[in-house]
Design a protein around this nucleic acid. Structure first.
Lengths: 182, 182
DNA sequence: GTCTATACCTGGATAGAC
DNA sequence: GTCTATCCAGGTATAGAC
């Protein structure tokens, strides 16, 4: 994969995760990278191609992490997962699911499909982690693992959004609350 | 306030909460309401005027609810609050903070300001409810009230987003989890 | 308060040269 | 793989008649 292609994707991802998919244009990419509009179209003929590739890239990055963490204990896995959000927070970025999901109906079909797939994978992974933690008696919450999963991923997702809207460290509270309640 | 003005705002709100602020145009309003583009501009000269009014309207609607619920017990207040999200879910709408917040940096200044104000008010109200519930021994969670507040509002916010992305009833899990853990 | 008409710009996208 | 040039659609917004 060429350098320019990667540069384009990295910048586009940042734009999606700060301004949203519908609020950025090829110009926002071509100007900073000092190339022309047409060059961006060479790499990604349609904007939705670019959008989909970014989702796939993120999805693969998650997969890689899961594999990396395979030997960890459930609590460690959970903490590692939360650390990803802390990283995003420090970069002032909303997560991709939050950035795209809130305007789901405006997204091209291919992006809807891959976004849904990715989100299901993350949710499935978290369900497994929480179930494993219950079984190993590392966790001790009263909800079912599936219920807890949804609170955890939902709370993390919007903590990054709320951090932007309210200038408070919502993620910090959310993290504390999750770890105390688990 | 004229009928048309209200119709415009209602439709625009729905558009924001399904497609996002940047993905709808005055045409999406004028066509269904069978008026012309210029008529919409008469009521709301700039798109950001329309956006801001919708935030203010939502903010006032919240205020009205809080007053209505003043005599309720904390747990009842919380349940009423959750019911608002269930209503949104049934209408297939993301909440306004989620819809706008995820692309915060693309929003005009006046909208950013009023969105932040509204979100702070909701958070403040929830903090009061949870503190009151702790004091009255109606609630019994281990986190601080402020920490719990952030999980609750964050989880509810994105449950509506995730409902769209994953076709599962995330809000249902989130509700169950909140009520069990409180 | 709504219309017609239009100005102006930006955005996505492509053709064809280098 | 990048460029110039250009097309076309759509979007926001305004002027001025009714």
């Amino acid at each position: 994969m060429s350098d320019k292609r990667i540069e384009i994707m990295d910048l586009a991802e940042k734009l999606i995760r700060t301004k949203g998919y519908n609020a950025f244009s090829y110009k926002d990419i071509s100007v900073p990278l000092q190339i022309k509009n047409a060059a961006v179209h060479y790499h990604f003929p349609k904007k939705s191609d670019l959008g989909e590739e970014i989702i796939l890239k993120t999805r693969n990055a998650f997969k890689k992490k899961y594999i990396e963490w395979e030997q960890c204990l459930p609590k460690e896995k959970l903490k590692n997962f939360i650390a990803l959000y802390e990283k995003n927070q420090s970069l002032n970025l909303v997560c991709l699911v939050g950035a795209l999901g809130s305007s789901y109906e405006s997204l091209p079909d291919n992006m809807q499909t891959s976004l849904t797939k990715m989100s299901e994978e993350i949710r499935g992974w978290m369900q497994d982690v929480l179930k494993e933690g219950l079984k190993k008696k590392e966790f001790n919450f009263t909800e079912t693992a599936d219920e807890k999963t949804d609170v955890v991923i939902a709370a993390l997702l919007s903590s990054l959004i709320l951090d932007k809207v309210i200038q408070k460290n919502i993620l910090k509270s959310v993290k504390a609350s999750i770890l105390k309640s688990i």
